[in-house]
Design a protein around this nucleic acid. Sequence first.
DNA 1: TTGAAAGCGCTAACAT
DNA 2: ATGTTAGCGCTTTCAA
Lengths: 350, 350
Amino acid sequence: MYVVEENLIMQRRVSIKDVAREAGVSIGTVSNTLNRPNLVSPSTRSRVQETIHALGFVRTEGARQLHGLPSPVVAVVVPQGADPFGAELTHEVEKVAAEISLGVMVHSDTPDDASRARYASFLAAQRVLGVVVAVETDTDQVLTALRDYGLPCVTAGEDHGASLGYAVHTDDVAGARTVVQHLLQLGHEFIAYLDGPATQRSRRRATGVAMALRAPGVAPRQELGLQAHALTVDAGREAARVLLGLRQRPTAVFCGDDRLALGVLQCLYEAGVSVPEDMALIGYGDSIHSATAAVPLTSVSRSVPEIARHAIRMLAVEGAPHLQDSADECAVVQPKLVVRRSSLRTVIHH
Amino acid sequence: MYVVEENLIMQRRVSIKDVAREAGVSIGTVSNTLNRPNLVSPSTRSRVQETIHALGFVRTEGARQLHGLPSPVVAVVVPQGADPFGAELTHEVEKVAAEISLGVMVHSDTPDDASRARYASFLAAQRVLGVVVAVETDTDQVLTALRDYGLPCVTAGEDHGASLGYAVHTDDVAGARTVVQHLLQLGHEFIAYLDGPATQRSRRRATGVAMALRAPGVAPRQELGLQAHALTVDAGREAARVLLGLRQRPTAVFCGDDRLALGVLQCLYEAGVSVPEDMALIGYGDSIHSATAAVPLTSVSRSVPEIARHAIRMLAVEGAPHLQDSADECAVVQPKLVVRRSSLRTVIHH
DNA sequence: TTGAAAGCGCTAACAT
DNA sequence: ATGTTAGCGCTTTCAA
């Protein structure tokens, strides 16, 4: 208490020295109390701890790092603008990181080399443990920028192309296949599949769709593939107009992204087409939008919490290079179909 | 180049010393080149800069802080779980922070003192410049925890109670009033107002609603106040059922939160009540959900980018205590009504 | 314009 | 079990 007041006036931080002086021990003992308590006698230990508490001492992380100790911080890079996946991943990474006392920095990616170099060097200066990269496009450029500064990276959610390294993503083939299997079980005879511009992920979804449709025992049915110009609500709405203009309309629409599905839903609402009665609608990603849509959307969960857990684990491994020469690792998590009202044939009132 | 290879093998970081040796100058000169380039002769300066580049040298922020330099990092504390406002604010804070080369750490708040103390001490150890607090409830407890560790705080969006300090929020009285004025202009005769549990913010909205309805020149009309048990989609859906059970239904519903409005929309959709034809619907917050809802929602934007800008400015001021004795500051930003289809009397097809 | 040197808060090796 | 001490990478006087 006595010294606290002094500090309030002097505006000087309480350092390990102050604790040492006040507790009548050396700074080495204070450091030991902090880092290797078992080396300190119980009586001294508790006295030091009390002093620490009384003075409100908090370690300066910066000073620890000078001794090569890893900084307890990871970074997440997400696309600029509203991105449900990026937001959810950030949140989940933060939760996992907190469990092992790691902090999380966020950076949004601007698609330009200069700004990438800027945040990469910033993170390098902060000596962060590693970076979780969750950008939707340009993944390779982002990875290159970060690795230029020697930052350990793990790609989350998106595909990395040629550049190898740690990565964790969802099994989109399985995800898409499950959706179509679900629709087939419901007896749909005409299924439309709407996805965005070709990416590794959309190609995997297309594969899954095809696998389900061509599976042995599945009778051939009507199908239609549509490509939206982007993974946005607007693009989804536009695509839906095409759908509604058809001579014969599909009885179910599977969208490769929740945002597309939301756009489709907007269009159907305006046109007075009921979901799921007139048309079933399924999204992908199980973003925050799925459950809160006017008609709660059946969607495929990418298991973001699992992705986050893998990512942090990989970074922790990189941080402590046990097997420096171990091969590049890539984890794949299984998606989960979340069935909601938008694909139910019989309307259930809860 | 030569030394780079060595470092790759030795796994040792390039320090200011290496640069000095390689460039044939003292470390003081390197430091000056970095921080006060004008004190260094052009020729030396460029030679040092080249060496820095060649060696891939990046300053260790931690070492700088030992000299009392402020850490270029701010933190944001948001509620745990999906919170559209928290997510948007984090994103906007990050954007503003990046402009002045500040990094951003995120922490989600768990409503328990121990975990609050944990992240507060973590942030204190990181010597962050300050903390933007954007929690929905328990604001005072969070502020107390952070201030216990001497962290400069600014409350964003939510109200702080007794505890003073920097704060920035939206003028909710004006926001709510604008909504009701909008509905009155559209000729609505029976307006329902649905909000969550009483908070300072909901009380301000109620005031705004009352002001608009009791304004001089406004003829008395039918009105109805409803209170949902929480600001969630589910709570909104439940409340909407009450609304639909009424002998006479309101022609417009104003919700104190977008999530409530989404719930109402779900219920109306199931019941076959068209928005806006049968019932106008307005939300609050202009979250990501507003524009993407099946019927794009008219809502009140809280001007999150402005809030973020104020918050960062306040933190920067705290960081550099010019006027230590200046009074506690509180900024209020004006909300904006964003009109979308859900409140349009005539349906416009785009 | 530059270099030398002290010291920031802390850890860890070493001495006692 | 505890104290002493040499740095870690950097900034910042102070001298030259």
